[in-house]
Design a protein around this nucleic acid. Structure first.
Length: 281
DNA sequence: CGAGCAACCTGCATGC
DNA sequence: TGCATGCAGGTTGCTC
């Protein structure tokens, strides 16, 4: 479900309920996520206040005095707010609500929950007491796509000796983070680059366009609350609207919006890839 | 070292 | 209706 814009949307949604609030308790209903949720987690964060909430790549990082919680939504994860005036009015727990954070709220007592729902359980809740920037899941990640250190000069240098295709290259978090399958397809279309082009051979000028396209498509998707394909909803249960803006993803066989040729589809590293044979070279 | 790919898991759409 | 198959927004950790 979530690429960078969906993670960003999720973070914005839960921020008011987490930042400067303290953890009353945490229920781990199913600890078997990508890695087992630490048994230490409940007592480690009980009573702790959230000092800061940040995104790095597709991780939501919740900082406490005692350590940090790294939350990854995997393919099908979401965080949702559940609150009511009376606890008994709370919606019942769904089958795949694996973790529930109970937060102290301004409004009353025991009424705000952050529920982590993840049918496929590819997501993760990782507790660390070290500086999260040095955690092995974070330390070796590439630059943030929306920051200035992700630019054409960087990408040019980084790609010169790469013989993999450009789509796989930009989806590799060692090169740049946050670009998943939807936005890789979209950015390559916008910049007119064929997904199977060899990364190391794409010209500097074309990488310039690609970098701009990645930044642009991600920023616009964030503005629209992300992409909802099947069931993505933000923390307040609202869908994103970017899917209405998708130009190639999920549109194989439809006509290219620019040249009117039918969009082609191939599988690259077992991921659906849609492109225009006329516009992308 | 990089590249390619199986693996993790459930739900849903499709076809027989 | 049931059952088999394939596909889905990600990433790690194997093999070569």
């Amino acid at each position: 479900m979530p690429e960078l814009p969906e993670v960003e949307t999720t973070l914005k949604g839960v921020l008011p309920y987490l930042l400067n609030k303290s953890v009353q308790s945490i229920d781990v209903h199913n600890a078997s996520l990508r890695w087992p949720v630490s048994k230490e987690l409940p007592k480690a964060i009980k009573g702790q206040t959230v000092n800061r909430l940040v995104r790095r790549a597709k991780y939501i990082i919740v900082e406490f005095d005692a350590g940090s919680l790294l939350i990854h939504l995997g393919m099908s994860g979401s965080l949702r707010i559940s609150q009511s005036d009376v606890l008994s009015n709370q919606e019942s727990l769904r089958k795949h609500d694996h973790v529930v954070l109970h937060m102290d709220s301004d409004a009353g007592e025991n009424v705000v929950q952050i529920r982590y729902y993840d049918p496929r359980r590819f997501g993760a809740w990782v507790w660390t007491t070290q500086d999260w920037r040095e955690h092995k899941l974070i330390a070796h990640l590439g630059p943030e796509p929306l920051l200035d250190d992700f630019n054409a000069q960087y990408l040019f240098k980084k790609s010169r000796h790469s013989k993999t295709n450009i789509k796989t290259f930009i989806m590799n978090a060692k090169n740049v983070v946050g670009v998943g399958n939807i936005y890789a397809n979209e950015a390559l279309f916008i910049s007119g680059i064929k997904p199977l082009a060899v990364a190391g051979s794409v010209s500097r000028q074309r990488l310039e366009r690609l970098v701009r396209a990645i930044k642009d498509v991600l920023a616009r998707a964030i503005d629209m609350g992300g992409t909802t394909l099947r069931d993505f909803v933000n923390a307040d249960n609202n869908p994103g609207y970017f899917q209405q803006t998708l130009l190639v993803y999920g549109r194989e066989g439809e006509l290219c919006t620019v040249c009117k040729l039918p969009l082609k589809s191939v599988r690259i590293s077992n991921r659906a890839t849609v492109y225009c044979g006329g516009c992308q070279r």
